[in-house]
Design a protein around this nucleic acid. Structure first.
Lengths: 132, 132
DNA sequence: TCCATTAATGCAACAAATTTGTATTTGCAA
DNA sequence: TTGCAAATACAAATTTGTTGCATTAATGGA
């Protein structure tokens, strides 16, 4: 799916910043932080604009937030865009990359009265490249 | 277990700040952030002291770090103290509380070459109180 | 109990991520 | 093309967390 269609399907205006973010994410295949995305787009946009774009696209369900342990928020394309189902993420504690694991998640039993919106699992460890 | 014994068992000095943190955590039953704990202890200690206390107690295995989606690190009493094993956490998107779920975690299958250190699962949704 | 050692604390300054306010620009529909 | 709402840039503020250093306090031994 192209960036234009993604934005239109979610009733968002097509802007250079949003299209840039989506393009970077689609080619990277990993979850990226604001600073990582910014470095790919080389100073074309203000940081504030990135943050507002993330929020807008998250609210629209295009992106979803992923947090690991270094207080840097990352975003990944959501299931609606990739077609993948909810899956665990792997965080490499050496190179700090985040990979999507090709596996589906099972929700744990919740106490009565609790309801679920979203499920996130993060496996921390060392990736193949850093283990080599 | 009392705060005195917990600290002694982990070869840590018994200080007012550490005992305060542990007391708040034991009565709260939830994972708490620096600002949440500080508000419970009403300006008795410097923020730096909290952060250093967290780190010390985390390194000693008394506390463990939990990160959800609002870029605020929280700490919960570790298994060594509560007797519970590694478990999923529930994050209420309404009141932003973090609860420990009484259940154990199963590690997903990893691609070859990857190794695991730690496992974290966060269920996002609305808690009983906010659903009422 | 008193003392020395060593760790813990407070304070100031810093750093990085993210947010907010506002004026200007841009996308898009009429 | 024109107008309006939404997006953007820029500046400044907030918030979370860290680091260096001087002072204070906890603990074990004399």
């Amino acid at each position: 799916m192209d960036t234009f269609s993604i934005l239109r399907n979610h009733n968002l205006r097509r802007t250079a910043c949003r299209e840039g973010i989506l393009k970077v994410m689609m080619t990277s295949g990993k979850a990226l932080s604001e600073s990582e995305i910014r470095s790919h787009l080389m100073g074309n946009f203000d940081r504030t604009t990135f943050y507002r774009s993330f929020k807008t696209m998250e609210d629209s369900g295009i992106l979803h937030k992923i947090v690991v342990d270094d207080r840097m928020v990352r975003y990944g394309l959501s299931e609606a865009v990739t077609g993948k189902s909810s899956h665990p993420h792997f965080y490499c504690t050496t190179c700090h990359s985040v990979f999507c694991l090709d596996q589906s998640l099972v929700a744990p039993q919740l106490p009565s009265g609790f309801s679920t919106d979203d499920l996130e699992m993060i496996v921390k460890g060392v990736c193949k490249k850093c283990n080599a």
